[in-house]
Design a protein around this nucleic acid. Sequence first.
DNA 1: GCGACAG
DNA 2: ATCTTGTCGC
Length: 236
Amino acid sequence: MTFPLTRPHATPATEAEAVERQLRLRDHTVLDSSGPAPGEPGTVVVGVDVAYDDARDLVAAAAVALDAASLEVVARATAVGRVDFPYVPGLLAFRELPTVLAALERLTVAPDLVVCDGHGLAHPRRFGLASHLGVIGDLPTIGVAKNPPPPPVREAAPGPAAERGSTAALLDPATGEEVGLALRTRDGVKPLYVSPGHRTTVDDARAHTLHLARGVRLPQTTRLADRLCREALAAA
DNA sequence: GCGACAG
DNA sequence: ATCTTGTCGC
């Protein structure tokens, strides 16, 4: 696949420059349109993830495409690159996206939805990894993270009930706006933190995540992409 | 001033 | 993210 308003993302030289770029891209985020319906037959859901090798300074990315109804794998792709931006909470996209984009370009099918391993709207500046990928690739995206977003985003008081499907709002303390959800995908386990990225809604993030995580905590997309990028890294 | 901080 | 065995529970 090819990317429209895209490409040659020169890595920012400083954190300040990265933040400026986030704020500029943020204006292009679309949050008032719903993505595809969960489990819609014929739609393609793609999971992306990355793995690092600090010793060799390498990063491997994987994109795994599933049929939204059957959850069968329909395509896979990987890419390996060099790490050229440090890990900075709030600026993950600049570390991971170049390689993720390379993997997505090698995918032979067009994603109807991309599930990212990280936050979307639930981000200190409302523009997490999932938002960034969505805008850059003009793709519907959602963010699914294993840990809460960095402050000032905070979880609404009573944590989610212990049952699968229960939620607690993630709020922007300044505006009171709901930017995502803590979502339990299995009874009695730690919740996931989901939020819309681009061309999706909070409820899309919730519904798709639940649909993709049947009997397991993490979405199938994330599990498969995680496994594949580790393999790609080991083979590099 | 000190701590917290997606992957 | 990554380094890593066994162990508790359904």
